Simulated assay, not measured.
Amino acid sequence: MGRGRVEMRRIENKINRQVTFSKRRNGLLKKAYELSVLCDAEVALIIFSSRGKLYEFGSSGITKTIERYERSTYNPEENNVERSWYHEVSKLRAKYESLQRTQRQLLGEDLGPLSLKELQNLEKQLEGALTQTRERKNHILMEQMEELREKERQLGDMNKQLKMKVSLEMTAFEAEQKALMIALPCPWNTNGPTGNHIFPVQISHQPNAIECQPEPILQMGYHNYNPGEGPSSTPRSLAIESSIIQGWAI
């Protein structure tokens, strides 16, 4: 009976898998050797087991065969571009890692590998950075104070202008009120030359103060006078009594 066909899939049993690997590895190495001898071919074979163990065969040496492979697949333009990009990426990666390391050291991390001299240099850098930060802060504060002073001066000028404007408007308003009060008629003065009710005005020393001199009042009817009380004590009552006309005389 012939051997049955083996299904091409991963062998789950660990022992069977290792046995199969050893048998087929030896057979593959044997076939590579036979091919190189019978056909005068340059053969290189590299095998890594699942555990990472290396098995190799080279009819002319593995390194020599690999170099020959690279020369046969070498494209100058593509290779130069790839090498250029590779070097650029390598430089950027190294710079990025250096910046990260420096940043951590400035934050007080990863200080263990640093020597005494490196720590002193780091301390000087931190002191210099702190000095520059304070100078910049003071400069910004001075600029803000100057801006506030300028705004204060502008507001002061605006306040003065508003005070002057209000003062002029108040002066004009007082003059207008004074002229209006001078021309205002007095209802009890009918002795004007034209018959208009114009009262004499006497301006006192106080602003906007006017005094209207009333005429004697004519009273109709009998005036109740009590001899025991004596004459009235007010000037107005005296003026009234002096201008009384008896009721029976009308």
Rank of each mutant, 00 (worst) to 15 (best):
W85Y: 12
K64T: 07
Q177G: 00
Q132S: 03
K91P: 00
L111E: 01
Y86M: 09
G128W: 02
G108I: 02
I210V: 03
A209W: 06
L45I: 03
W85C: 11
F21L: 06
G230P: 08
V19N: 12
N121I: 03
L45V: 07
L155G: 05
R17N: 00
N226Y: 10
S115C: 08
E135G: 00
K178Q: 06
E143V: 11
L116H: 09
M8T: 11
R24I: 02
Y33Q: 11
F48Y: 11
G61I: 03
S90E: 04
E7P: 09
K163L: 13
Q202M: 12
R3K: 11
F48I: 05
I47L: 04
S233H: 12
C39I: 07
G230N: 08
P207G: 00
E82D: 10
M142Y: 14
H197G: 02
E169P: 03
E12C: 01
N191I: 08
P207W: 00
T133P: 01
A249Q: 12
K14L: 02
T234L: 04
E143Q: 15
Q246V: 12
G4Y: 03
D110E: 12
Q219E: 09
E215I: 09
T194E: 09
L54Y: 04
I15K: 10
N80E: 15
I66D: 07
P227Y: 05
K151T: 12
R68P: 04
G58M: 02
K163E: 13
E135R: 01
M164F: 10
M220I: 11
C39W: 03
L141K: 14
E78Q: 14
L38I: 12
E78W: 06
K137Y: 04
V89A: 15
S49M: 01
S242I: 06
L92Y: 01
P216T: 03
K23A: 08
K14Y: 02
R83N: 11
H223N: 14
H87I: 07
A172H: 15
E174N: 06
V43F: 00
G228D: 15
R10Y: 02
R51H: 09
P227E: 10
V89N: 14
L99Y: 04
R10V: 03
R153Q: 10
L126Y: 00
V201N: 13
P231D: 13
N189E: 05
L114T: 02
